[in-house]
């Protein structure tokens, strides 16, 4: 990842002495160097891409919810482009054919037997602790203001820790504390807070998948698991497992609400 930062470093080349000094600086702490080279917003853009913010990607999603009130599961097939996605539930049979469409941050829900798609808000629950908005790619770089960015180690991995505040009222969470791996530039942990500054939800992320990597481009890490724990009921755990991701062209008609009922 640091290779991408080199052009910026060269731009600030102060000559050989400077280079030696700079390399010494790097050897003392790559974390500080990358922090210097990448702005907070650029780091968030990298982290957003690994959460699905890509030009055309298809994957399967398995959600398991284990709560005091019982266990539940959903399997979905998802087609996404940027922040738009179409999610079709495939299992269990009672939800087969249920669809969730998000276009330009407008969301609709449809299912067999329902005559037309129903507009829904991102807060509406999908299953367990997962809201419909949790399927969507994140856009923290634009939806949130960075109040602070610090560095700390999480599980032995150096991280940037962002204190994010909603830039507008239309986002799912008002405030987020977000840990981004300094090595991979992917979000690995998040804490979600209410308007009253009360923490109500925690999430951890894994990135075992890689996308792309052809035509001279570096492979792009892609989310493989998201574990959501409700703070007020720590036994309530919802796990989202992302599998079989592949990049492909997804036409605009996929996200057309007029065709949703007949998809």
């Amino acid at each position: 990842m640091y290779e991408r930062l080199m052009p910026k470093r060269r731009a600030c080349d102060l000559g050989a002495l400077g280079a030696i000094f700079f390399l010494s600086f790097l050897s003392l702490g790559a974390l500080s160097a990358s922090c210097w080279a990448l702005s907070a917003r650029e780091i968030l853009i990298h982290a957003d891409r690994a959460r699905g913010n890509l030009d055309g990607v298809v994957w399967r999603l398995a959600i398991e919810s284990d709560e005091q009130s019982g266990r539940d599961r959903r399997n979905l097939e998802i087609k996404a482009r940027g922040y738009d996605f179409l999610a079709v539930m495939t299992d269990p049979p009672k939800v087969q054919g249920h669809k969730l469409l998000m276009v330009n941050h407008n969301m609709w829900f449809a299912k067999p037997g329902l005559s037309k798609p129903v507009p829904i808000s991102p807060r509406q629950k999908l299953i367990g602790g997962a809201s419909y908005g949790d399927i969507a790619a994140t856009n923290y770089a634009e939806d949130y203001d960075v109040l602070s960015m610090t560095e700390e180690s999480l599980g032995g991995h150096p991280c940037y820790v962002f204190d994010l505040k909603a830039a507008h009222k239309k986002v799912t969470y008002d405030r987020i504390k977000y840990w981004v791996s300094a090595e991979r530039l992917v979000g690995i942990r998040a804490e979600y807070y209410t308007l009253s500054e009360k923490k109500f939800k925690e999430a951890e992320f894994e990135y075992a998948h890689q996308l792309g990597g052809s035509a001279g481009q570096a492979p792009q890490p892609f989310i493989s698991a998201m574990k959501i724990v409700e703070v007020l009921a720590a036994d309530n755990v919802t796990t989202l497992r992302f599998s079989e991701p592949r990049m492909e062209t997804v036409p605009a008609s996929t996200f057309n609400v007029n065709l949703l009922m007949s998809r």
């Binding site: 941050h105 407008n106 969301m107 507009p119 829904i120 808000s121 991102p122 807060r123 908005g133 009222k169 239309k170 986002v171 799912t172 969470y173």
Partner: peptide
């Protein structure tokens, strides 16, 4: 016409 006025509120 409709809008997502906030993460919880829809108006139409």
């Amino acid at each position: 016409a409709g809008m997502t006025a906030s993460e919880a509120l829809l108006l139409y």
